[in-house]
Design a protein around this nucleic acid. Structure first.
Lengths: 212, 212
DNA sequence: TTATCATTGCAACGAGCGTTGCAGTCAGAT
DNA sequence: ATCTGACTGCAACGCTCGTTGCAATGATAA
């Protein structure tokens, strides 16, 4: 509303409105969850009439699934970029892994923080989301990222720097260790120093667990 | 309703009713989450009039917090029992850790499955639960378990079987690795063989990461 | 028996929410 | 200028839910 519309508009609603809706819906779904988040709240957050949402999405459920898909794809791209940037050319394996882990937790805690709050909502709502949507999300999100990371680790193992019997499992282990999976086991909120200490310790454990 | 009341009854409602309410509320809160779960549904699940719930608990929020506390304490006791049973007397460290991990994931997947579904709901609802309740839960639940496991690991390290700079971190790493943290990274549902493979691989990584 | 008390069923309230219809407005395309 | 289509504000619907009040029931303790 506060901005002027510019450019052509394809069929099915204006794309900037759609993007605004998706962004606002991500924010509210992430914070409040599917049931608690209201369409009026989403509309307000997006700066859009609540009636417009029904111009772009069939109902609340489909909006939720669209938000999941959109956010998952975007974040997966970001994570894969981090993987490519830090794990393509290896010079010092431990140092490169630490830098990878640092970038990993940084993006999880800042830019992609709403997305991972949404992921917690998804995990809580799993019984109420149609299986097809869950499968689609897993495929375009975590599975794709895990596959990319597993491939990189496998390539490093081929060069002899690691011994990895199961690349998928190694990828999961590395992600778990460097991110502490969002403090589930009673950890406090971390400052900068504790954060790098966590990443370093995780990389250390991973490295000695998979080093030949 | 269907059972006869027996024994004395202390002030504030009958204890079997209270337990039935807590059990039913755990089941529904775990499956549906705080907002979606209705008091009528909980009352039906518990075999109790919805009016009776207000005899035992002030409102829905306090019932939720009571369920969290009750379930967390019970499950923490179970987990600590597993820790004591498998990590007190060490004969073969790797074998004992694998047995520990096997019992760990078994209880998470069966007896305590509703509790960990509830934990996922807590993680999703964190912004809507009073800080005091969150702190109380962390203390009687994950923190207490982590402390117990850290102490055991530290004692093993004192005997020279492990080299552990930070026992708390080591405890978190071990729990993450043996449980894969409830398949967040795109893992499929596991059968029995994959489950032991997961535990074994996790123990292997942990052990080589922390072995001197 | 009588008194106490937890439990129950029912009715009611007020609020919030998803969803739809309708009329009006505004910007771009012909 | 006219037409098209998207957006908006408003009102309304039906529904669910948390919560409370009230009268009735049944069991226990004196």
């Amino acid at each position: 509303m506060t901005e002027k519309t510019k450019g052509l508009r394809p069929a099915g609603g204006q794309p900037d409105k759609r993007r605004a809706i998706l962004t606002g819906a991500l924010a509210l779904f992430a914070r409040d969850g599917y049931t608690r988040a209201s369409l009026d709240g989403i509309a307000a957050e997006a700066g859009v009439s609540s009636r417009t949402i029904y111009n772009h999405f069939r109902d609340k459920a489909q909006l939720f699934e669209a938000v999941i898909q959109e956010s998952s794809g975007r974040v997966a791209d970001t994570q894969i970029a981090i993987i490519d940037r830090h794990l393509s050319k290896i010079v010092d394996l431990e140092a490169d892994l630490v830098e990878f882990g640092t970038a990993w937790v940084a993006v999880m805690d800042s830019a992609a923080a709403p997305h991972f709050a949404l992921v917690r909502q998804i995990h809580a709502e799993l019984e109420h989301i149609p299986q097809t949507a869950v499968d689609a999300w897993r495929e375009t999100g975590p599975r794709r990222v895990r596959g990319e990371l597993a491939e990189r680790l496998g390539r490093i193992a081929d060069r002899g720097s690691l011994r990895i019997p199961d690349p998928d499992r190694a990828a999961v282990h590395l992600m778990l260790l460097v991110s502490n999976d969002n403090l589930p086991y009673g950890a406090d909120r971390r400052n900068e120093k504790e954060l790098t200490a966590m990443v370093t310790a995780g990389v250390h454990t991973f490295l000695h667990g998979y080093r030949p």
